[in-house]
Design a protein around this nucleic acid. Sequence first.
RNA 1: GGCGCGGUAGCCAAGUGGUAAGGCCGGAGUCUGCAAAACUCCUAUACGCCGGUUCGAUUCCGGCCCGCGCCUCCA
Length: 478
Amino acid sequence: MEIKLYDTMTRKVKRIAPTDEKRFRFYCCGLTVYGPAHIGNFRTFTLQDVLRRILKISGLNPYHIRNITDVDDKTIRQSESKGKSLKKITEKWTDIFHADCQELNMLPPHKEPKASEHIPQQIKLISTLLNKGCAYQAKDGSIYFKISTFPDYGKLTQLDRVELKTQTDANDNHQNLADEYEKETVADFSLWKARKANDGNNYWVSPWGEGRPGWHLECSAMSMEYLGESFDLHGGGIDLCFPHHENEIAQSEMATGIKPFSKHWFHSAHLIVDGKKMSKSLGNMYTLEEIKLKGYTAMALRYLLISGHYRQPLNFTFNGIDAAQSAINKLETFIYEMLSNIKMIKEDFISLQLETSTDDWGYLDKAWEALINDLNTPACLGNIFSALNKISSANLTTNEITSNLKALAHITYALGLDPFSKEQKTVLVPNEIRKLAEERWLAKNSKDFIKADKFRDEIQAEGWQVHDGKDTYKLVPL
RNA sequence: GGCGCGGUAGCCAAGUGGUAAGGCCGGAGUCUGCAAAACUCCUAUACGCCGGUUCGAUUCCGGCCCGCGCCUCCA
Protein backbone atom coordinates (compact mmCIF):
# COMPACT_ATOMS: atom_id res chain seq x y z
CA MET A 1 0.00 0.00 0.00
CA GLU A 2 1.58 3.19 -1.19
CA ILE A 3 0.55 6.65 -0.21
CA LYS A 4 1.26 9.15 -2.92
CA LEU A 5 1.25 12.88 -2.48
CA TYR A 6 2.29 15.88 -4.53
CA ASP A 7 5.55 17.44 -3.40
CA THR A 8 5.87 21.17 -3.90
CA MET A 9 9.65 20.99 -4.11
CA THR A 10 9.90 18.49 -6.95
CA ARG A 11 6.48 19.30 -8.37
CA LYS A 12 5.72 15.65 -8.65
CA VAL A 13 3.41 13.18 -7.02
CA LYS A 14 5.70 11.08 -4.89
CA ARG A 15 5.37 8.13 -2.58
CA ILE A 16 5.67 9.14 1.03
CA ALA A 17 7.29 6.91 3.61
CA PRO A 18 9.07 7.37 6.91
CA THR A 19 12.83 7.69 6.74
CA ASP A 20 13.53 5.77 9.87
CA GLU A 21 10.92 3.04 9.38
CA LYS A 22 9.61 3.74 12.85
CA ARG A 23 7.43 6.74 12.51
CA PHE A 24 6.47 9.32 9.93
CA ARG A 25 7.60 12.66 11.28
CA PHE A 26 5.82 15.73 10.02
CA TYR A 27 5.56 19.34 10.95
CA CYS A 28 2.76 21.75 10.13
CA CYS A 29 2.82 25.49 10.48
CA GLY A 30 0.07 26.32 12.89
CA LEU A 31 -1.95 29.30 13.90
CA THR A 32 -0.92 32.75 15.05
CA VAL A 33 -3.14 33.23 18.07
CA TYR A 34 -4.32 36.80 17.87
CA GLY A 35 -7.94 36.00 17.05
CA PRO A 36 -10.21 33.07 16.28
CA ALA A 37 -9.10 30.80 13.47
CA HIS A 38 -11.14 31.26 10.29
CA ILE A 39 -12.49 28.56 8.04
CA GLY A 40 -9.55 29.01 5.69
CA ASN A 41 -7.15 28.10 8.47
CA PHE A 42 -9.30 25.08 9.12
CA ARG A 43 -9.15 23.95 5.54
CA THR A 44 -5.41 23.55 5.84
CA PHE A 45 -5.50 21.96 9.27
CA THR A 46 -8.29 19.59 8.28
CA LEU A 47 -6.41 18.37 5.23
CA GLN A 48 -3.35 17.76 7.38
CA ASP A 49 -5.58 15.89 9.79
CA VAL A 50 -6.86 13.68 6.97
CA LEU A 51 -3.30 12.99 5.86
CA ARG A 52 -2.40 11.98 9.38
CA ARG A 53 -5.39 9.67 9.62
CA ILE A 54 -4.48 8.01 6.34
CA LEU A 55 -0.93 7.50 7.56
CA LYS A 56 -2.26 5.92 10.70
CA ILE A 57 -4.54 3.52 8.87
CA SER A 58 -1.65 2.60 6.62
CA GLY A 59 0.45 1.71 9.61
CA LEU A 60 3.00 4.45 8.98
CA ASN A 61 2.82 5.65 12.58
CA PRO A 62 2.50 9.40 12.10
CA TYR A 63 4.15 11.80 14.51
CA HIS A 64 2.51 15.16 14.03
CA ILE A 65 3.86 18.46 15.29
CA ARG A 66 1.98 21.71 14.84
CA ASN A 67 3.16 24.92 16.40
CA ILE A 68 1.36 27.83 17.98
CA THR A 69 2.75 31.24 17.09
CA ASP A 70 2.28 33.30 20.21
CA VAL A 71 4.97 35.91 19.68
CA ASP A 72 4.72 38.25 16.74
CA ASP A 73 3.68 41.77 15.80
CA LYS A 74 -0.02 41.06 15.94
CA THR A 75 -0.12 39.26 19.26
CA ILE A 76 2.11 41.86 20.86
CA ARG A 77 0.08 44.71 19.41
CA GLN A 78 -3.08 43.19 20.86
CA SER A 79 -1.50 42.62 24.21
CA GLU A 80 -0.34 46.23 24.37
CA SER A 81 -3.59 47.72 23.17
CA LYS A 82 -5.70 45.69 25.60
CA GLY A 83 -3.29 46.11 28.46
CA LYS A 84 -3.20 42.38 29.06
CA SER A 85 -0.21 40.13 29.18
CA LEU A 86 0.84 38.42 25.99
CA LYS A 87 0.35 35.10 27.70
CA LYS A 88 -3.18 35.89 28.72
CA ILE A 89 -4.15 37.06 25.26
CA THR A 90 -2.62 34.15 23.41
CA GLU A 91 -3.94 31.55 25.82
CA LYS A 92 -7.44 32.80 25.32
CA TRP A 93 -7.25 32.39 21.53
CA THR A 94 -5.44 29.10 21.85
CA ASP A 95 -8.24 27.70 24.00
CA ILE A 96 -10.83 28.76 21.46
CA PHE A 97 -8.75 27.23 18.70
CA HIS A 98 -8.58 23.94 20.56
CA ALA A 99 -12.30 23.88 21.12
CA ASP A 100 -12.92 24.52 17.41
CA CYS A 101 -10.48 21.80 16.42
CA GLN A 102 -12.26 19.35 18.67
CA GLU A 103 -15.63 20.17 17.18
CA LEU A 104 -14.18 19.68 13.74
CA ASN A 105 -13.05 16.26 14.90
CA MET A 106 -9.38 16.98 14.40
CA LEU A 107 -6.88 14.79 16.17
CA PRO A 108 -4.67 16.92 18.41
CA PRO A 109 -1.06 17.02 17.21
CA HIS A 110 1.28 14.82 19.21
CA LYS A 111 3.09 17.97 20.25
CA GLU A 112 1.95 21.53 19.92
CA PRO A 113 4.96 23.69 20.77
CA LYS A 114 4.65 27.39 21.39
CA ALA A 115 7.16 29.87 20.07
CA SER A 116 7.37 31.65 23.42
CA GLU A 117 8.44 28.45 25.12
CA HIS A 118 11.30 27.80 22.74
CA ILE A 119 13.26 31.02 22.89
CA PRO A 120 16.56 29.38 23.95
CA GLN A 121 16.41 27.00 20.98
CA GLN A 122 15.86 29.94 18.67
CA ILE A 123 18.69 31.94 20.19
CA LYS A 124 20.98 28.97 19.75
CA LEU A 125 20.04 28.68 16.11
CA ILE A 126 20.83 32.34 15.55
CA SER A 127 24.23 31.90 17.20
CA THR A 128 24.98 29.02 14.88
CA LEU A 129 24.00 31.08 11.86
CA LEU A 130 26.09 34.05 13.03
CA ASN A 131 29.08 31.78 13.58
CA LYS A 132 28.71 30.42 10.10
CA GLY A 133 28.69 33.88 8.67
CA CYS A 134 25.25 33.74 7.11
CA ALA A 135 23.67 36.25 9.45
CA TYR A 136 24.58 39.74 10.54
CA GLN A 137 23.54 42.33 13.06
CA ALA A 138 22.08 45.57 11.82
CA LYS A 139 22.55 48.96 13.40
CA ASP A 140 19.41 48.71 15.49
CA GLY A 141 20.51 45.41 16.98
CA SER A 142 18.29 43.13 14.89
CA ILE A 143 19.82 40.06 13.32
CA TYR A 144 19.17 39.22 9.68
CA PHE A 145 19.77 36.17 7.60
CA LYS A 146 21.92 36.94 4.60
CA ILE A 147 20.27 35.10 1.76
CA SER A 148 23.20 35.66 -0.57
CA THR A 149 25.05 33.02 1.48
CA PHE A 150 22.51 30.37 0.55
CA PRO A 151 22.76 29.55 -3.14
CA ASP A 152 19.66 27.36 -3.03
CA TYR A 153 17.48 30.22 -1.91
CA GLY A 154 14.22 30.15 -3.83
CA LYS A 155 14.36 26.47 -4.77
CA LEU A 156 10.96 25.68 -3.36
CA THR A 157 9.13 28.37 -5.29
CA GLN A 158 11.64 28.47 -8.13
CA LEU A 159 12.28 32.11 -7.58
CA ASP A 160 15.80 31.97 -8.91
CA ARG A 161 15.85 35.62 -9.50
CA VAL A 162 15.11 36.77 -5.99
CA GLU A 163 18.62 37.80 -5.25
CA LEU A 164 19.06 39.39 -8.62
CA LYS A 165 15.90 41.30 -8.06
CA THR A 166 17.01 42.63 -4.73
CA GLN A 167 20.23 43.84 -6.25
CA THR A 168 18.54 45.66 -9.08
CA ASP A 169 15.91 46.95 -6.75
CA ALA A 170 18.63 48.38 -4.58
CA ASN A 171 18.96 51.04 -7.21
CA ASP A 172 15.37 52.08 -7.19
CA ASN A 173 12.55 52.51 -4.75
CA HIS A 174 13.16 49.40 -2.69
CA GLN A 175 16.46 50.79 -1.53
CA ASN A 176 14.55 52.92 0.87
CA LEU A 177 12.76 49.92 2.28
CA ALA A 178 16.03 48.13 2.89
CA ASP A 179 17.41 51.20 4.60
CA GLU A 180 14.40 51.51 6.79
CA TYR A 181 14.87 48.05 8.16
CA GLU A 182 18.63 48.37 8.15
CA LYS A 183 18.94 45.26 6.05
CA GLU A 184 21.70 44.77 3.55
CA THR A 185 19.27 43.64 0.90
CA VAL A 186 15.51 43.65 0.88
CA ALA A 187 15.14 39.89 0.74
CA ASP A 188 17.16 39.31 3.89
CA PHE A 189 14.81 38.36 6.65
CA SER A 190 14.94 38.88 10.36
CA LEU A 191 16.03 36.19 12.76
CA TRP A 192 15.94 38.44 15.78
CA LYS A 193 14.05 41.66 16.19
CA ALA A 194 15.56 44.22 18.51
CA ARG A 195 13.25 45.47 21.22
CA LYS A 196 11.19 48.49 20.30
CA ALA A 197 9.29 50.90 22.50
CA ASN A 198 5.89 49.58 21.47
CA ASP A 199 6.84 46.01 22.35
CA GLY A 200 6.17 46.84 25.98
CA ASN A 201 7.47 44.14 28.27
CA ASN A 202 7.41 41.53 25.57
CA TYR A 203 11.08 40.90 25.09
CA TRP A 204 13.75 38.35 25.86
CA VAL A 205 17.40 38.76 26.61
CA SER A 206 19.86 37.47 24.06
CA PRO A 207 23.59 37.84 23.44
CA TRP A 208 22.61 40.61 21.02
CA GLY A 209 20.47 42.54 23.42
CA GLU A 210 16.78 42.56 24.23
CA GLY A 211 14.30 41.58 21.62
CA ARG A 212 12.34 38.67 20.24
CA PRO A 213 12.77 36.03 17.57
CA GLY A 214 11.57 36.51 14.02
CA TRP A 215 8.63 34.53 12.77
CA HIS A 216 10.38 32.18 10.36
CA LEU A 217 12.84 31.04 12.95
CA GLU A 218 10.41 29.41 15.33
CA CYS A 219 9.37 26.72 12.89
CA SER A 220 12.97 25.77 12.19
CA ALA A 221 13.84 25.68 15.87
CA MET A 222 10.79 23.74 16.97
CA SER A 223 10.71 21.26 14.12
CA MET A 224 14.34 20.42 14.78
CA GLU A 225 13.67 20.18 18.50
CA TYR A 226 10.97 17.57 18.07
CA LEU A 227 11.69 15.93 14.74
CA GLY A 228 15.41 16.25 14.21
CA GLU A 229 17.41 18.14 11.62
CA SER A 230 15.77 16.43 8.69
CA PHE A 231 12.30 14.97 8.70
CA ASP A 232 9.66 13.46 6.45
CA LEU A 233 7.16 16.15 5.57
CA HIS A 234 6.41 19.78 6.17
CA GLY A 235 2.99 21.25 5.56
CA GLY A 236 1.18 24.54 5.46
CA GLY A 237 -1.01 26.81 3.43
CA ILE A 238 0.11 27.60 -0.10
CA ASP A 239 0.84 31.19 0.87
CA LEU A 240 3.58 30.02 3.19
CA CYS A 241 5.74 28.75 0.33
CA PHE A 242 7.22 32.16 -0.03
CA PRO A 243 8.76 33.56 1.96
CA HIS A 244 8.12 31.52 5.09
CA HIS A 245 9.16 28.09 3.90
CA GLU A 246 11.98 29.36 1.72
CA ASN A 247 13.32 31.09 4.77
CA GLU A 248 12.91 28.03 6.93
CA ILE A 249 14.83 25.98 4.41
CA ALA A 250 17.58 28.58 4.15
CA GLN A 251 18.17 29.01 7.85
CA SER A 252 17.76 25.33 8.68
CA GLU A 253 19.96 23.91 5.97
CA MET A 254 22.63 26.54 6.57
CA ALA A 255 22.58 25.91 10.30
CA THR A 256 22.78 22.13 10.14
CA GLY A 257 24.46 21.59 6.82
CA ILE A 258 21.95 18.80 6.31
CA LYS A 259 19.77 18.61 3.22
CA PRO A 260 16.96 18.32 2.82
CA PHE A 261 15.42 20.06 5.79
CA SER A 262 12.17 18.32 4.86
CA LYS A 263 11.87 15.44 2.43
CA HIS A 264 8.43 16.43 1.24
CA TRP A 265 6.48 19.68 1.08
CA PHE A 266 2.72 19.56 1.37
CA HIS A 267 0.80 22.74 0.62
CA SER A 268 -2.90 23.22 0.48
CA ALA A 269 -4.59 25.77 -1.72
CA HIS A 270 -6.66 28.53 -0.24
CA LEU A 271 -10.26 28.69 0.65
CA ILE A 272 -11.92 31.61 -1.03
CA VAL A 273 -15.34 33.00 -0.20
CA ASP A 274 -17.87 33.89 -2.85
CA GLY A 275 -15.11 33.87 -5.41
CA LYS A 276 -12.98 36.36 -3.53
CA LYS A 277 -10.02 36.09 -1.28
CA MET A 278 -10.98 36.20 2.35
CA SER A 279 -10.17 39.47 3.96
CA LYS A 280 -11.25 41.45 6.91
CA SER A 281 -12.20 44.43 4.81
CA LEU A 282 -14.64 42.36 2.75
CA GLY A 283 -16.10 40.92 5.93
CA ASN A 284 -15.98 37.42 4.54
CA MET A 285 -13.69 35.77 7.06
CA TYR A 286 -15.98 33.30 8.71
CA THR A 287 -15.22 31.49 11.92
CA LEU A 288 -16.63 28.16 13.01
CA GLU A 289 -18.77 29.98 15.53
CA GLU A 290 -20.37 32.06 12.79
CA ILE A 291 -21.03 28.99 10.66
CA LYS A 292 -22.71 27.30 13.59
CA LEU A 293 -24.81 30.34 14.35
CA LYS A 294 -26.16 30.09 10.85
CA GLY A 295 -27.36 26.63 11.76
CA TYR A 296 -24.76 24.34 10.23
CA THR A 297 -22.94 21.61 12.07
CA ALA A 298 -19.19 21.50 12.43
CA MET A 299 -19.29 18.24 10.48
CA ALA A 300 -20.99 19.96 7.56
CA LEU A 301 -18.11 22.41 7.49
CA ARG A 302 -15.58 19.62 7.68
CA TYR A 303 -17.32 17.84 4.82
CA LEU A 304 -17.28 21.00 2.76
CA LEU A 305 -13.61 21.60 3.46
CA ILE A 306 -12.68 18.18 2.10
CA SER A 307 -15.13 18.24 -0.79
CA GLY A 308 -12.57 19.83 -3.10
CA HIS A 309 -9.08 18.66 -3.93
CA TYR A 310 -6.43 20.20 -1.69
CA ARG A 311 -4.40 21.56 -4.57
CA GLN A 312 -7.34 23.47 -5.93
CA PRO A 313 -8.78 26.62 -4.46
CA LEU A 314 -12.11 25.89 -2.82
CA ASN A 315 -14.88 28.43 -3.09
CA PHE A 316 -16.90 28.66 0.08
CA THR A 317 -20.54 29.60 -0.45
CA PHE A 318 -23.64 29.05 1.65
CA ASN A 319 -25.04 27.16 -1.27
CA GLY A 320 -22.07 24.86 -0.92
CA ILE A 321 -22.42 24.31 2.78
CA ASP A 322 -26.12 23.58 2.29
CA ALA A 323 -25.11 20.83 -0.11
CA ALA A 324 -22.47 19.61 2.33
CA GLN A 325 -24.97 19.53 5.17
CA SER A 326 -27.39 17.47 3.08
CA ALA A 327 -24.68 15.09 1.99
CA ILE A 328 -23.30 14.50 5.47
CA ASN A 329 -26.84 13.99 6.77
CA LYS A 330 -27.40 11.38 4.11
CA LEU A 331 -24.21 9.57 5.04
CA GLU A 332 -25.08 9.66 8.72
CA THR A 333 -28.57 8.37 8.14
CA PHE A 334 -27.26 5.58 5.98
CA ILE A 335 -24.80 4.42 8.61
CA TYR A 336 -27.45 4.65 11.28
CA GLU A 337 -29.84 2.49 9.25
CA MET A 338 -27.15 0.01 8.39
CA LEU A 339 -26.25 -0.38 12.03
CA SER A 340 -29.80 -0.98 13.11
CA ASN A 341 -30.28 -3.52 10.31
CA ILE A 342 -27.69 -5.76 11.81
CA LYS A 343 -28.52 -4.87 15.40
CA MET A 344 -25.40 -2.94 16.08
CA ILE A 345 -25.10 0.28 18.00
CA LYS A 346 -23.12 3.44 17.69
CA GLU A 347 -20.44 2.20 20.07
CA ASP A 348 -19.84 -0.82 17.85
CA PHE A 349 -19.18 1.48 14.93
CA ILE A 350 -16.85 3.63 16.94
CA SER A 351 -14.86 0.62 18.05
CA LEU A 352 -14.64 -0.45 14.41
CA GLN A 353 -13.24 2.98 13.59
CA LEU A 354 -10.57 2.56 16.19
CA GLU A 355 -9.24 -0.63 14.65
CA THR A 356 -6.89 1.28 12.49
CA SER A 357 -5.76 -1.15 9.88
CA THR A 358 -7.69 -3.19 7.39
CA ASP A 359 -7.16 -5.09 4.19
CA ASP A 360 -10.80 -5.55 3.34
CA TRP A 361 -12.32 -2.43 1.86
CA GLY A 362 -15.32 -4.15 0.33
CA TYR A 363 -17.24 -1.76 -1.87
CA LEU A 364 -15.17 1.07 -0.40
CA ASP A 365 -12.01 0.03 -2.18
CA LYS A 366 -12.14 2.86 -4.66
CA ALA A 367 -12.80 5.37 -1.93
CA TRP A 368 -9.63 4.30 -0.16
CA GLU A 369 -7.60 4.25 -3.36
CA ALA A 370 -8.64 7.82 -4.07
CA LEU A 371 -7.39 8.88 -0.67
CA ILE A 372 -3.95 7.38 -0.97
CA ASN A 373 -3.61 8.73 -4.48
CA ASP A 374 -2.66 12.32 -3.78
CA LEU A 375 -5.27 12.77 -1.08
CA ASN A 376 -8.16 12.91 -3.50
CA THR A 377 -10.88 13.59 -0.97
CA PRO A 378 -13.58 14.63 -3.49
CA ALA A 379 -13.12 11.42 -5.46
CA CYS A 380 -13.20 9.54 -2.18
CA LEU A 381 -16.53 11.10 -1.25
CA GLY A 382 -17.94 10.30 -4.67
CA ASN A 383 -16.82 6.70 -4.36
CA ILE A 384 -18.32 6.45 -0.89
CA PHE A 385 -21.74 7.36 -2.24
CA SER A 386 -21.29 5.00 -5.17
CA ALA A 387 -20.54 2.28 -2.63
CA LEU A 388 -23.58 3.18 -0.55
CA ASN A 389 -25.75 2.89 -3.64
CA LYS A 390 -24.31 -0.54 -4.34
CA ILE A 391 -24.73 -1.67 -0.77
CA SER A 392 -28.35 -0.68 -0.63
CA SER A 393 -29.23 -2.22 -3.98
CA ALA A 394 -27.32 -5.48 -3.53
CA ASN A 395 -28.79 -8.33 -1.56
CA LEU A 396 -26.12 -8.66 1.04
CA THR A 397 -25.74 -11.22 3.76
CA THR A 398 -25.25 -10.08 7.31
CA ASN A 399 -21.58 -10.91 7.01
CA GLU A 400 -21.24 -8.83 3.88
CA ILE A 401 -23.04 -5.95 5.49
CA THR A 402 -20.77 -6.19 8.49
CA SER A 403 -17.63 -6.16 6.43
CA ASN A 404 -18.80 -3.19 4.39
CA LEU A 405 -19.77 -1.42 7.54
CA LYS A 406 -16.30 -2.04 8.85
CA ALA A 407 -14.81 -0.55 5.70
CA LEU A 408 -17.14 2.40 6.04
CA ALA A 409 -15.94 2.85 9.59
CA HIS A 410 -12.37 3.03 8.37
CA ILE A 411 -13.05 5.41 5.56
CA THR A 412 -15.05 7.78 7.75
CA TYR A 413 -12.24 7.62 10.27
CA ALA A 414 -9.77 8.51 7.52
CA LEU A 415 -11.81 11.53 6.53
CA GLY A 416 -12.49 12.39 10.14
CA LEU A 417 -16.22 12.43 9.53
CA ASP A 418 -18.06 11.67 12.73
CA PRO A 419 -21.26 9.92 11.61
CA PHE A 420 -23.01 10.69 14.86
CA SER A 421 -22.69 14.42 14.85
CA LYS A 422 -26.44 14.85 14.70
CA GLU A 423 -26.61 13.71 18.27
CA GLN A 424 -24.16 16.32 19.32
CA LYS A 425 -25.35 19.74 20.13
CA THR A 426 -23.29 21.32 17.43
CA VAL A 427 -26.24 23.23 16.10
CA LEU A 428 -26.91 26.22 18.25
CA VAL A 429 -30.65 26.68 18.47
CA PRO A 430 -31.60 30.06 19.86
CA ASN A 431 -33.60 29.84 23.07
CA GLU A 432 -36.65 31.63 21.72
CA ILE A 433 -36.88 29.13 18.87
CA ARG A 434 -36.56 26.23 21.24
CA LYS A 435 -39.35 27.68 23.35
CA LEU A 436 -41.68 28.07 20.38
CA ALA A 437 -40.95 24.52 19.33
CA GLU A 438 -41.75 23.26 22.81
CA GLU A 439 -45.12 25.00 22.74
CA ARG A 440 -45.88 23.67 19.30
CA TRP A 441 -45.08 20.15 20.41
CA LEU A 442 -47.49 20.47 23.34
CA ALA A 443 -50.22 21.85 21.09
CA LYS A 444 -49.68 19.14 18.54
CA ASN A 445 -49.85 16.41 21.13
CA SER A 446 -53.15 17.78 22.38
CA LYS A 447 -54.38 17.70 18.76
CA ASP A 448 -54.68 21.44 18.51
CA PHE A 449 -53.30 21.47 15.01
CA ILE A 450 -54.30 25.01 14.23
CA LYS A 451 -52.29 26.30 17.14
CA ALA A 452 -49.45 23.93 16.37
CA ASP A 453 -49.25 25.11 12.76
CA LYS A 454 -49.24 28.69 13.89
CA PHE A 455 -46.20 28.02 16.02
CA ARG A 456 -44.60 26.20 13.14
CA ASP A 457 -45.12 29.22 10.92
CA GLU A 458 -43.51 31.44 13.48
CA ILE A 459 -40.56 29.11 13.79
CA GLN A 460 -40.18 29.00 10.04
CA ALA A 461 -40.33 32.76 9.82
CA GLU A 462 -37.30 32.77 12.10
CA GLY A 463 -35.46 30.47 9.73
CA TRP A 464 -35.92 27.11 11.41
CA GLN A 465 -37.76 23.98 10.49
CA VAL A 466 -39.41 21.43 12.70
CA HIS A 467 -38.94 17.76 11.86
CA ASP A 468 -41.37 15.57 13.73
CA GLY A 469 -40.27 12.17 14.84
CA LYS A 470 -42.30 9.56 16.63
CA ASP A 471 -41.60 10.67 20.18
CA THR A 472 -39.74 13.88 19.67
CA TYR A 473 -38.90 16.56 17.18
CA LYS A 474 -35.80 18.12 15.72
CA LEU A 475 -34.98 21.66 14.78
CA VAL A 476 -32.95 22.27 11.67
CA PRO A 477 -32.10 25.50 9.93
CA LEU A 478 -33.91 26.34 6.74
C1' G B 1 6.92 41.18 -15.59
C1' G B 2 8.34 36.20 -12.76
C1' C B 3 6.27 31.55 -10.81
C1' G B 4 1.75 28.79 -10.63
C1' C B 5 -3.52 27.22 -11.09
C1' G B 6 -8.22 26.69 -13.26
C1' G B 7 -12.55 26.93 -17.13
C1' U B 8 -16.92 19.47 -16.98
C1' A B 9 -24.77 19.67 -16.77
C1' G B 10 -28.88 24.90 -12.68
C1' C B 11 -24.80 24.69 -8.47
C1' C B 12 -20.46 21.93 -6.50
C1' A B 13 -16.93 18.36 -8.05
C1' A B 14 -13.95 13.64 -9.78
C1' G B 15 -11.97 11.37 -13.99
C1' U B 16 -10.24 8.92 -18.58
C1' G B 17 -6.69 8.31 -25.50
C1' G B 18 -12.24 5.02 -27.09
C1' U B 19 -18.35 8.77 -26.30
C1' A B 20 -18.19 11.08 -18.67
C1' A B 21 -18.15 9.07 -10.79
C1' G B 22 -20.63 11.34 -7.00
C1' G B 23 -23.18 15.17 -4.09
C1' C B 24 -26.73 19.29 -4.07
C1' C B 25 -30.98 21.20 -6.54
C1' G B 26 -35.49 19.61 -9.45
C1' G B 27 -39.72 15.94 -10.40
C1' A B 28 -42.86 11.57 -8.91
C1' G B 29 -44.19 8.12 -5.21
C1' U B 30 -44.31 5.84 -0.03
C1' C B 31 -45.02 7.50 4.86
C1' U B 32 -47.67 11.20 7.93
C1' G B 33 -52.97 15.39 11.58
C1' C B 34 -50.95 18.61 7.44
C1' A B 35 -45.97 19.51 6.33
C1' A B 36 -40.98 18.48 6.82
C1' A B 37 -37.51 14.68 7.39
C1' A B 38 -36.52 9.78 5.75
C1' C B 39 -36.87 6.15 1.96
C1' U B 40 -37.68 4.50 -3.38
C1' C B 41 -37.61 5.82 -8.34
C1' C B 42 -36.81 9.42 -12.25
C1' U B 43 -34.43 13.46 -14.68
C1' A B 44 -29.91 16.42 -17.70
C1' U B 45 -27.26 14.95 -25.93
C1' A B 46 -22.01 18.93 -19.29
C1' C B 47 -16.06 18.56 -20.90
C1' G B 48 -14.10 27.58 -22.65
C1' C B 49 -12.61 28.72 -28.15
C1' C B 50 -9.45 27.46 -32.56
C1' G B 51 -5.99 24.43 -34.72
C1' G B 52 -2.58 19.94 -34.57
C1' U B 53 -1.17 14.66 -33.44
C1' U B 54 -4.26 10.12 -33.64
C1' C B 55 -8.36 5.14 -36.37
C1' G B 56 -10.37 8.03 -32.33
C1' A B 57 -9.24 13.80 -27.58
C1' U B 58 -12.89 16.25 -22.77
C1' U B 59 -8.23 13.64 -21.78
C1' C B 60 -1.70 14.80 -25.46
C1' C B 61 0.67 19.36 -28.16
C1' G B 62 0.34 24.65 -29.81
C1' G B 63 -2.29 29.25 -29.88
C1' C B 64 -6.29 32.27 -28.05
C1' C B 65 -10.16 34.07 -24.64
C1' C B 66 -11.80 34.33 -19.60
C1' G B 67 -11.09 33.81 -14.26
C1' C B 68 -7.73 33.27 -10.07
C1' G B 69 -3.34 32.84 -6.61
C1' C B 70 1.69 34.10 -4.81
C1' C B 71 5.82 37.66 -5.62
C1' U B 72 8.41 39.89 2.19
C1' C B 73 5.88 38.12 7.49
C1' C B 74 -1.63 35.97 5.17
C1' A B 75 -3.44 28.66 6.44
